[in-house]
Structures are given as structure tokens and as C-alpha cells.
Design a binder for these strands. Structure first.
Lengths: 182, 182
DNA sequence: GTCTATATAGGGATAGAC
DNA sequence: GTCTATCCCTATATAGAC
């Protein structure tokens, strides 16, 4: 099993249990590797595992959410492509956001800068697209923030209500929020 | 120190560290009571402490967020009153939402039903107000959900970005989202 | 590279003095 | 009601065999 495959199995544990809840026992069970083997791959222990998870997710987002935004299609089509990436990433809202579960407690102390940077990049990228359509920078930024708030809020609602409908509605509303006058 | 005062000191620990991160040590430090004293007040241990916290918060929300919605003022004024309650409850976004931090990991298994019930109540209450203004039930419900998504999403953004602006903007937008055509 | 076995620290929880 | 002292278990992490 490659390191990538190992990390792919670690991710859902962090997403569903958070940093403190992602115990070495659960990580061991999720991967099928005993604890000592995990320490062989990640000498820095749990903290380094979380770092690897964050990096892996960053790359995935880059390729599946940001990349579609940078194609040569019309802005609306690029945003629709991004929406498909988001829907896949969050599995229609059923997979929690690492950004939000890692911004709690101990994990926040360890990774705050990195999380903040990732969020900023997402907002900046979205705002740039909106600006391309002729919207003022300040307005574009607010729309990008509104879009991310809606996504993050939808994820909370889905988690608590066990109903993916709010997420689907939120995704469907993104093009309107970003491109049309409110 | 009364039980209410103790609980008031316990709450921020759960909000900032989540259920698993809210260790008895931290709860002890936050209250100034040693662990054994906490067990005297809450014989059910940590789980019962969390229950007490959730109940206390439920009452607070009832009095400061729901009650204003039931006054005899105009719908818009009632919603503005609710917004003030929300702003106070979340300290302009600087205090995380218990609902969201408790819907992760072990805590979610323990309290899922209760959290789901609280969220449902909030949505139903908001939707009822919107319906009063002549909006169709389905539309009203979606607006209420949109409002809660925006709030929850704003809280994530504030936590990650250390910037309360998105929350303030979100709160300011609530009357529009609930009462005006989009 | 993966395992068993183990060390050390901290978690939740209780007994019993005051 | 609050404390000190302590129990047991699990968490993180390491040693060393295969």
C-alpha cells in the first residue's frame, strides 16, 4: 500500500472525529496498519499525520476545485465546474470539512496559520473570478466570502440534521451568489 | 458559587475545545473546582456535564433568541431583536457554536438527537415568522435554513480567519434573507 | 516495513478525610 | 462541598524482533 493510499484512509477519521478524536487506535484500525507501523511512516507521530492529511487535501482541492476555476471557459462554466469539485469533495455534504473540524481545540493551536492560509487562498481565488465579470473588488470579495459561508454552514446543517438537501441547495445557489446581483 | 455560575464557566471550554478536548482537567481549571468536586455536582461525570451545558444554553437561547421572536412587534423588529440576541450569544462570532463543535466524534453519538432537535426548533421558529409575512411554507422554510447556514458558516470563517467582519455582515443580512425577495 | 511488547503520561472516575 | 490521594484505562510514543 502506497503512502498516498494510507493517507487517503486516514482522512475520513480526522474529518469525522476531529484532531483529538482521531486517536492512533482509530487511525490504526482505519488503515489496517498497527500503531508502530504508522510511526514508521510518520516519525513525527500524530501531529505529522495531521500535517500529511492537510497537505494531501490541499493538493486535492488544488486539482479538483481551483484548477477548474482557471480554465479558459466562461466564468459561469468555471464556477459550475468548481461546484462539481466541491460536491465531490464533501460527498454532497456527508463528509465534514477538515478546515472546520481542525479549527477546534488543540488542533487549532497547531495548524491555525495553515488553515487560515488555505481559507484565504480559496476566498482570493473565488474573488478573482468574480472580479473578472466586472464586479468591484470589494463586492467580489464579499460574494466570495458569502459563498464560503454558505458552504460551511450547509455542512453544519447536514451534519446535525442528517439531511443533504441544504447542501445541495447551497451548491445550486453558488453561481447566483457569485455572479448575479443580489 | 451556584450551580448556574459553575455551568457558565464550563460552557466556554466546550465551545473552544469540543467534547473530547474538554477534559476534566480543563473543566476543573476553568471553574476553580477540583475534579472530585465536579463529580460531586455532576455524578454522571463528563457526559452529564455536557448535558447540563446543553440544557443551560438551550434555556439561554430560548430567552434571548426565541422570546424576542414571539413579541407583538412587527416581524422585521422581532427579527432585529433576534439578531441582537444572536450577536450576544456568539459574541460577534468570537464564541463558537456548541451545536457545531458537539456534532463531531464521540459527542455526536451521545447528543445527536438533542442537537438535531435544537436545530429543528430554531428553523421551525424562524420559518413560522417568515410565513407570517405571507411567504409560502416551503419558501419560508428555505429562507430559515439559509439564515442558519449563513450564521454557522460565518462562525467557521471567523474562527479560521480571526476576523469578525464576516459574522457582522452575516447578521446584518439576516433580515433581508428572511423577509425580502432574493 | 510490519509486528509484539512495553514505557510513560494523561484521561475519566472513586474513596474517604475534612 | 471541597479537597488529596489513588485506581484503572486509554493515549501517545518507543524498543527491538522478524
Amino acid at each position: 500500500m502506497s503512502k498516498e493510499q494510507v493517507i487517503a484512509k486516514l482522512i475520513p477519521v480526522f474529518r469525522h472525529y476531529g484532531y483529538e478524536g482521531a486517536t492512533m487506535s482509530r487511525l490504526s484500525e482505519a488503515t489496517g496498519l498497527k500503531k508502530a507501523s504508522l510511526y514508521h511512516h510518520f516519525q513525527g507521530g500524530k501531529e505529522q499525520i495531521a500535517e500529511a492529511v492537510l497537505e494531501y487535501i490541499g493538493t486535492w482541492i488544488e486539482e479538483n476545485v481551483f484548477a477548474p476555476l482557471k480554465s479558459d471557459q466562461a466564468p459561469r462554466d468555471r464556477i459550475l465546474a468548481m461546484c462539481r469539485g466541491i460536491d465531490k469533495f464533501y460527498q454532497t455534504g456527508q463528509e465534514p470539512c477538515v478546515l472546520s473540524v481542525m479549527s477546534v481545540g488543540e488542533a487549532d493551536n497547531l495548524f491555525h496559520q495553515q488553515l487560515e492560509q488555505s481559507l484565504k487562498q480559496w476566498i482570493d481565488t473565488l474573488a478573482a473570478i468574480v472580479e473578472e465579470t466586472g464586479i468591484e473588488p470589494q463586492q467580489a470579495r464579499e460574494r466570495a466570502e458569502d459563498a464560503l459561508m454558505l458552504i460551511q454552514g450547509a455542512l453544519v446543517l447536514v451534519r446535525v440534521s442528517n439531511n443533504t438537501q441544504p447542501f445541495q441547495r447551497a451548491i445550486a445557489k453558488l453561481p447566483q451568489i457569485l455572479l448575479e446581483d443580489q
